[in-house]
């Protein structure tokens, strides 16, 4: 894999001060007979936003789902290669996938709040992981999570109301708050704004920008503008390959790969 080696060499140039949070080496994924990812190697650095872009069906979501083993829920999916979280292989059979997902949270394409109250939505994660020692602490976690998700002001008077009653953008921010409440180290976002209107999208993007101070964020997006707005590093996927990876600014101004050039200039996608 020439391409991936190239990116590894280029890696340090992007932002030298950050340490590598997650590293993947030669990750391949098969869905039954079909190969969806062909040996992806990519480093994700701490406390910044990494955007995965590429035309639909390029494998960016598949790769994202590998990072917290959500692919385990698909019977036919088979993942090979290595993904390290702080140097620890997350596909180690001894590793508890539940612990992994508590460290690597996920926000989905379509907002999917539980049909329970807003409070319970946020409190669920801390509850199952036993993060709060008592009721007050749990209350505090819920409130800070909602605040950090920028939702607190809007919902503070109706925490008992069902989360499904919120607007689409609010629902998605609730899902983000829910993910934050577990205090993960990495948050994976799978096209978090694709079901939202422009105004809600702007709010969520602002939120992502703020969250990068505390969390490592990997976001899949089909919108290049969004990638340009929120990310520091962009990885371009194409047909199951990693076409190019680099600092977002450089990618959008002067990409090395022809496919990236084509995509960014809108020749395909």
């Amino acid at each position: 894999m020439d391409m991936s080696r190239a990116t590894f060499e280029k890696g340090p140039a992007v932002s030298q001060d950050k340490t590598i949070k997650m590293a993947s080496k030669d990750v391949t994924v098969h869905y039954g007979q079909k190969q969806a990812l062909n040996g992806i190697s990519l480093d994700i650095k701490e406390r910044q936003v990494t955007a995965l872009i590429g035309p639909s069906g390029c494998g960016k979501s598949t790769y994202l789902r590998c990072l917290n083993r959500m692919n385990d829920t698909i019977d036919t999916a088979k993942v090979d290669g290595k993904i390290l979280l702080d140097g620890e292989n997350i596909y180690d059979p001894d590793l508890d996938v539940v612990e992994l997902r508590a460290r690597v949270g996920m926000v989905f394409q379509k907002p999917n709040p539980f049909p329970k109250s807003i409070w319970e939505n946020v409190a669920y994660g801390p509850k199952i992981h036993g993060l709060a020692k008592n009721k007050d602490q749990l209350e505090e976690i819920v409130h800070t999570s909602l605040k950090r998700a920028g939702l607190y002001k809007e919902v503070k008077d109706r925490l008992d109301e069902p989360g499904t009653g919120l607007s689409g953008g609010q629902q998605q921010r609730l899902c983000i708050a829910r993910a934050i409440a577990v205090s993960p180290e990495v948050i994976l976002m799978d096209e978090p704004c694709s079901a939202l209107d422009p105004i809600a999208t702007a709010t969520v993007e602002e939120l992502i920008d703020e969250l990068k101070q505390n969390f490592t964020i990997v976001i899949v997006t089909h919108s290049m503008q969004q990638a340009a707005r929120v990310s520091q590093v962009t990885a371009m996927f194409h047909l199951g390959d990693l076409a190019e990876v680099g600092a977002t600014e450089k990618m959008f101004s002067n990409p090395d790969d022809k496919r990236t050039q084509d995509y960014i200039t809108g020749r395909f996608g």
Partner: peptide
């Protein structure tokens, strides 16, 4: 029960059993 509910719980680090008994079954 839509699969998105299962993903949401799994994504938060709930185990499969927790997902089923705490979310899917009540719904």
């Amino acid at each position: 029960v839509p699969p998105s509910i299962r993903w949401a719980a799994l994504g938060l680090g709930a185990s499969k059993t927790q997902t089923v008994f705490q979310h899917v079954l009540p719904l």
